[in-house]
Amino acid sequence: MSENKVAAPAKKLRFMPQLAGRPYLGLSLTLAVIVIMILWPLVTGKDITRETVFTILLSVTLASSLNILLGYTGYVSFGHVVFFGLGGYVGFYLLAIQGWSLWMAMLAGGLSSALLAYLLGRAILRLRGAYFALATIGINEAMRAFINNFKPFGGPIGMTLNFQVYRDYGGASQALWMVFYTMGALTLLAVTVSFFVRTSKFGLGLLAIREDEDAAEVMGVVAPKAKTWAYVLSAIFPGIIGVLFFFKNGSIEPAPAFRLHFSIETIVMVMLGGQGTVLGPVVGSGLYQGIRGYLLTSAIFKNIQLAVAGGLLLLIVLFVPDGVIGWLRHRFPFLRRVLQ
């Protein structure tokens, strides 16, 4: 029966010229947008620009990662922040208590999130639709409550970083720039991974699962395996940048690390830009943070920014469910080559 053996699911990520038009054009466009964002603070030379761009890059990375599960595979993870929080905590513990370097701590953060996703994935990815969404909320809340009681991680007080640590990275202000560029590099990497997943055979299997999981299995897609790997891939970057974020922050506590609202904001960004596209989460994150920044600083909306954001979200969900990129692709099919 050797002829029946099936090739292992896409180890090599190949692009699909026939299927996607000219995909590298789409990737280049997306990466160019991000590079311009990274260079922007250099142009203005202001710390405030750097902080704004940092927030956007963080969002882009989280949104692009989530998109692998939400947009490509069709599983709504409401508690995705659990990977950001757990990775952040593990890395922060290694940095602050065990004296590891930032790089090793980031690696450990990413790996621990990936491991959690792998273990969870085998179990909860059997659930479909709203049941899966609820389970992810439950896991995030359970994790937060657990960390709240976990003494080595400082319980409800969390942990703080000794200021001396920044000296290894050229002092506090130098470290902020280094963190910024590291964030930029990770964003480029996360988006590239998202692109190669989207255009690979593995990605095609995910899309098939999204459209009709049972039919996909009948065609030979090993859904339990593919879904688990999609979940793992979507957890790695949140884990890594969790470490980076809390390193920059100088302290970590359960509430900000596992904030459910943060998860849902990420979903909104993916939706806003267009789920299932590579460029969508990038555009969505930029738009969302832009709108949020405007509302927070505007005299009229400052106090009710959350309500206005809610109203906008409702309008998008009701009238533009495909998001900006999805809408453009639908409206102008010739743009599909560049807007991926």
Partner: peptide
């Protein structure tokens, strides 16, 4: 499901936003 989840969540944001104000 994502649509109804987000639609009701947007109502959540509106109520909390106005309520806090």
């Amino acid at each position: 499901h994502l649509s109804t989840l987000l639609a009701t969540f947007s109502v959540n944001m509106i109520i909390i936003g106005l309520g806090t104000a």
